[in-house]
């Protein structure tokens, strides 16, 4: 067992864990933050995407001990009703979800994408979301939602 101290959504959390505990289960099972989903469990689908120290990562392929001392942000940490984050609002407005299972990971990946590239082209948005699968295949509205909150969308007056 090993003690880790991880700041999750701004809150300091200290837990004694097995080194083999994956970050996604630290979040879901120990902290009860079930907004982060486990989809494929093989680093393919991106449903488990969270931010570690500001960058998107797949929390099914990261040990919680690797995040020791770091800062993690999950979907619960960026906003909830009635104060949704602009990306969440845009997903709602553009109807960028069908079953909703991929949505938390999509939103977290999209925010990281815009942090790296605030004014992406449509092709860059599609490429930047390559690590996230929507099994309903509802990509068009997801891309529209991301573009709408980007500087590209601001210029087009989509906000």
């Amino acid at each position: 067992m090993r003690t880790v101290a991880i700041t999750v959504n701004g809150e300091f959390r200290r837990h004694e864990i097995e080194p083999r505990l994956l970050l996604v289960y630290f979040l879901r099972d120990l902290l009860g933050l079930t907004g982060t989903n486990v989809g494929c469990d093989t680093s393919t689908c991106g449903a488990c995407t969270v931010h570690l120290d500001g960058s998107s990562v797949k929390s099914c392929t990261l040990l919680a001990v690797q995040a020791d001392g770091g800062s993690v942000t999950t979907i619960e940490g960026i906003g909830s009703e009635p104060a949704l984050n602009p990306m969440q609002q845009s997903f709602q407005r553009m109807h960028a979800l069908q079953c909703g299972f991929c949505t938390p990971g999509m939103v977290m990946a999209a925010m990281s994408l815009l942090a790296d590239n605030p004014a992406p082209t449509e092709a860059e948005v599609r490429r930047g979301l390559e690590g996230n699968l929507c099994r309903c295949t509802g990509y068009h509205n997801i891309v529209r939602a991301v573009l709408a909150v980007s500087e590209t969308g601001e210029r087009r007056g989509e906000q």
């Binding site: 680093s43 991106g46 995407t49 570690l52 960058s55 998107s56 990562v57 797949k58 392929t61 990261l62 990946a109 990281s112 994408l113 790296d116 930047g128 390559e130 690590g131 996230n132």
Partner: peptide, 9 residues
């Protein structure tokens, strides 16, 4: 290589 999340780690 892979995707942005993997490239971040």
């Amino acid at each position: 290589v892979a995707d942005p999340q993997v490239r971040h780690r």
